[in-house]
C-alpha cells in the first residue's frame, strides 16, 4: 500500500517524460530543422516566422517616442512598487504572507550589503544596489512570462525585455558610476580625486631638479610620471568599467532573447522551455553581478588604502 503513490508518481513522471520527448521529436522533425532535411516547408502548426532580432528598441505607437522597452520597464516598476506597497501597507510585528516574503528578501540583501560594506556603509548603499538588482531581475523575468512579446502594435511588439535595450544597461551603469564617484568623494573629500590626478610626486621631482639635487629629482620625476599615468589609467578604468557594465548586461540579455527566439524557430516545442529555465537563471545571475559589482566598487571607493591593507 505504501509503495503505490511512489509507483504512481514514477509512472506519471515517465509518462510526462515520454510525452515531452515525443513532442520534442515531432517538433524537431516537423519544425524548421526537419524541414531543411526534408527539403520542404515546416508543418503548419509548427511554422514560426524566422527570427529577426532588432537591436534598437522599437516604437509601437506611431508618432510617440515611447518604445516597447520603456513600456516593459514601466510594467517592471509597477510590479515592484505594487509588491512593496502591498507588503508594507499594514505591517505587523509578526509578519505573514507577502510581508514575510518581501521582508525575507530584504533582510538577505541587507545582510549581504552589511557583510560586504560594513554596517555603516551598507545601510547607505543598500537602496541603490538592491533597486538595481530588482530592476534588472524583474525586467529579465518579465520577458519570460507567457505572451510577453506576442502582442504587436503597428507590426512592432508592444513589450520587449528592457535589459536588451542598450539605453537601460547604460543608464544603470551611469547611475552606478555616479553613485560610486559621489560616495567616494563624500567619504574622502578632495583626496579622493588624488586617485586620478596625482601630480604631487612629479612636482616634488621638478623642485628637486631645479634645486640641483639631480639624482633624487630624476628618480622622483620618473616616479611622478608613473603616478600621473597610473592616475590616468585609474580614471580610464572607471569609464571603461561603465562600458563593461553596459555591454555585459546588454549582451547577455540580448543574446538570451535571441537564443530563445532561435530555439523557438528551430524546435518550437519543449526545447525552448529548457532555455527559458536557463534564461531565468541568467537573469538572476546578471542582476546579482550588476548589483554586486556596484556594491564592490562602492566599498572600494569609500574604503581608504590604509583600511584596505590593514
Amino acid at each position: 500500500m505504501t509503495e503505490k503513490p511512489f509507483l504512481k508518481r514514477f509512472l506519471n513522471l515517465r509518462v510526462i517524460l515520454f510525452i515531452g520527448l515525443a513532442l520534442a521529436i515531432v517538433s524537431f522533425i516537423g519544425g524548421s530543422v526537419g524541414a531543411m532535411f526534408r527539403n520542404s516547408s515546416p508543418l503548419v502548426f509548427l511554422a514560426t516566422s524566422s527570427p529577426q532580432p532588432v537591436l534598437p528598441a522599437e516604437k509601437p505607437f506611431a508618432g510617440l517616442f515611447v518604445t516597447n522597452t520603456m513600456i516593459a520597464s514601466w510594467i517592471s516598476i509597477l510590479v515592484l512598487f505594487g509588491l512593496f506597497f502591498f507588503a508594507s501597507r499594514k505591517m505587523k510585528l509578526l509578519p505573514g504572507g507577502l510581508q514575510n516574503l518581501v521582508e525575507f528578501f530584504c533582510e538577505v540583501a541587507i545582510n549581504f550589503t552589511d557583510d560586504v560594506a560594513g554596517k555603516k556603509w551598507g545601510r547607505l548603499f543598500f537602496p541603490v544596489c538592491f533597486t538595481i538588482f530588482l530592476f534588472v531581475l524583474t525586467n529579465a523575468w518579465l520577458d519570460l512570462t507567457p505572451g510577453f512579446g506576442t502582442v504587436e502594435m503597428n507590426g512592432v511588439p508592444l513589450l520587449r525585455n528592457a535589459n536588451s535595450d542598450i539605453n537601460v544597461p547604460l543608464m544603470l551603469a551611469v547611475v552606478s558610476f555616479c553613485f560610486v564617484e559621489y560616495q567616494g568623494f563624500k567619504a574622502k573629500g578632495a583626496s579622493y580625486l588624488q586617485k586620478f590626478f596625482n601630480f604631487g610626486l612629479l612636482a616634488c621631482g621638478f623642485r628637486q631638479l631645479f634645486s640641483g639635487r639631480f639624482k633624487n629629482g630624476l628618480k622622483d620625476t620618473f616616479m611622478g610620471i608613473v603616478a600621473v599615468f597610473a592616475g590616468f589609467i585609474e580614471g580610464l578604468s572607471e569609464l571603461i568599467r561603465m562600458i563593461s557594465f553596459t555591454f555585459r548586461l546588454f549582451g547577455n540579455m540580448l543574446a538570451g532573447t535571441i537564443v530563445v527566439m532561435v530555439m523557438i524557430y528551430l524546435v518550437p516545442w519543449v526545447i525552448p522551455s529548457l532555455f527559458y529555465g536557463l534564461e531565468a537563471l541568467l537573469g538572476f545571475v546578471q542582476a546579482l553581478i550588476f548589483a554586486g559589482l556596484t556594491l564592490g566598487f562602492l566599498t572600494m571607493a569609500v574604503t581608504s588604502e590604509r583600511e584596505e591593507t590593514s
Binding site: 528598441a57 517616442f65 518604445t67 522597452t69 520603456m70 520597464s73 514601466w74 517592471s76 516598476i77 515592484l80 512598487f81 512593496f84 506597497f85 507588503a87 508594507s88 505591517m91 518581501v102 521582508e103 530584504c106 543598500f126 537602496p127 541603490v128 538592491f130 533597486t131 530588482l134 530592476f135 528592457a162 535595450d165 539605453n167 537601460v168 547604460l170 543608464m171 544603470l172 551611469v174 547611475v175
Partner: peptide, 24 residues
Amino acid sequence: TFISQLISFLILLALLTFFGYKPI
C-alpha cells in the same frame, strides 16, 4: 530613451525607498 529610462529608474528608487525599504 536614455533620459526616460533614467527618470523611470530614479522614480522606482524613490518609490521603493519610501514605500518599501524604509518601513521594512
